[in-house]
Each structure stands twice: as structure tokens, then as C-alpha cells.
Simulated assay, not measured.
Amino acid sequence: MKDQPREVQVERQNATEFILLGLLNHSKVHMFFLALILLAFITAVSGNVLLMFLIQVTPSLHTPMYFFLSQLAFMDICPSLFIIPKMSVDFLIPGNTISVAGCGTQVFLMLTTGVGECLLLAVMSYDRYVAICKPLQYPVLLSRRICLGLTAAIWICVPINALIHTMYTMRLPYCGSKSIDHFFCEVPALLKLSCSDTSTYETVVFVNSIVVLFIPFSIIVASYTYILSTVLKMKSTTGQQKALATCSSHLTVVGLFYGAAMFTYMKPSAEHSTRQDKVVPVFYSIVTPVLNPVIYSLRNRDVLGALRRMVGKY
């Protein structure tokens, strides 16, 4: 500390806020994109809130599959609320700052919901595997006690993991620019601003990503492989087509979410470009929260039936 120039010491002492440069520029085209993002925000929040409400008030939806779907809906609402309102304000007020505490809160909440969704998608794929491939064992393998235990384990372990990464990242020395070339605070974007050697920590992030991204993704692929194998043995062509359409739509959303997350957290930092680092997170922070309620639920006959009954009642 003593050997560093005085101006660097002052910068390090005064690291109380950052500036998010955002995803969009001030042009008519980007104004249109902002309108689309706000529409996606409204769609994601309203769709997931509706889904949670339907599952809560409909007794026939009180099953393991819909219990996990309600957890997924909650995790999808959170990124929209954490990111898009702040991004819109930053677009309207260039140079608007975010405090270190606010930035750390974004990092913590995004890691919590992002990693939580990774694990939950793996649990949901296992639920579908048991339901289709081992239907007679379903009440035992996914009893209420097991479902609650799996969910509790996710909600206990994930915040601890997020807190460790958040505390380490926010304690790094930021000696230069406080302008984050991103539309929300994220670990890879913050590491670029640190004036310390972060190579060891980047290795830790990579190993952690294997555990929370690659392993759950492998479980999902294995589950759907067994499901497809079982489906293809069906004698009913209509049943095969319906199951294949459902599986393909599920895997599309999973591929978007995991692909973008793996690109961000598992690709070496030297191979990242600023534009890619801003565009790729759009898929897991904005796109998938919109698609999930449509793909997993609103195309579902039981959910649509519950929605029709509720509309007819009120």
C-alpha cells in the first residue's frame, strides 16, 4: 500500500460506488429494444405470478411437479425485478451510480437465483424421469418429504455459496475506473475492474461452475435421454409426438439458460469480449424468465384448465 502512488490509494479508499454503462445506447433503435425489454419484464413478472397463484389455489396442482414449478416461477421473477428497473433508470439517466452495497446485493441475488435455478431444473428433470420411466415408484421416490428436503437443500446451500463469492468479489481492490461495462453487477464484469491478480479466484469460479452448472446439466441430459428412450418405445404415435414436442421445448429453454451461463462463467476471461459479456447474460436474465412459464406451464393442459375455471368463476 505504501509503495503505490497517492492517487491510487485515494481511489482505493473511495470505492463507494460504481457506474453501470448499460446494454443500450441512446438511439431510436435502442429505444425500441428498451421497449421490448420492458414488455418482456411485464410478461415475465405477470406470467410467473399468475402461475404461482394458480398452483397455490388449485388443489389438483398440489403435486411435486407443480411444487417445483412454483419455485422456478419465483426464481424467474427475481432477476427481472433486480435488473430491468435499474437498467431502465440507467438508460434514462446516463451516469447514474450504484453503491457498492447495491452492487453487492445484485451479485448476491443473481448468484442465488441463478445457481438455484440450475439445481432446480436438474431436480425437475429427475421428476419427469421418475414420472415417465418409473411411474409406479413415483409416490415413493418423490414423496412430499423428499420434495421439501430437496427444495430446502437448494435454498440453504445456494445463498451460502452466493454470499462467499459476493464477499470476496466486493472486497477486491478497485483502483482504476469504476465504470462497469455491463447492465448489472456480475462477478466476471467486476473482476475486469480489479487491480489485483484474480487468476486464482477465476480458477475457483471455474471449478465452482463445474459443480453448479455442468453436473446439473449432465443430470438433465441423462434424464431426458432416458425419457426419450421410453417415449420412442410407445405404440401410440400421437403420444410420441406430444412427448417429443414437450421434451424438445423443455430442452430448448434449458439449453439457452445453461449455454449462456456456461459461456459467462466457464469460458476463460482472456477469450471474452465486452460485447459478448453484455449480450449473453440477456438469455438467462431476461429471455428465460419469459419463456419458462410458457414452455413449462401455460402450454400445460392442467394449468390452462385451472386458468379457465378461475376466469369463469370471477
Rank of each mutant, 00 (worst) to 15 (best):
R128E: 07
V130E: 01
A131D: 14
I132T: 11
P135G: 04
P139K: 13
R144I: 09
I146P: 09
L148H: 03
L148K: 15
I154T: 02
I154S: 03
I156C: 14
V158G: 07
P159W: 04
I160S: 04
L163M: 12
M167E: 00
M170G: 00
R171F: 10
R171W: 06
P173S: 04
P173C: 10
Y174R: 03
K178P: 03
K178W: 07
S179G: 10
D181Y: 07
H182Q: 15
H182S: 14
F184W: 08
A189L: 06
L190E: 00
S194T: 11
C195W: 08
D197Y: 09
S199Y: 13
T203D: 10
V204F: 09
F206V: 07
V207F: 04
S209T: 06
S209I: 03
S209N: 00
I210M: 08
V211N: 11
L213M: 11
I219A: 05
V221Q: 02
L228S: 13
L228W: 12
L228H: 15
S229G: 10
T230P: 05
M234Q: 14
M234C: 03
T238A: 14
G239C: 13
Q241Y: 09
K242I: 14
C247I: 14
L251Y: 06
T252P: 00
T252N: 14
T252Q: 03
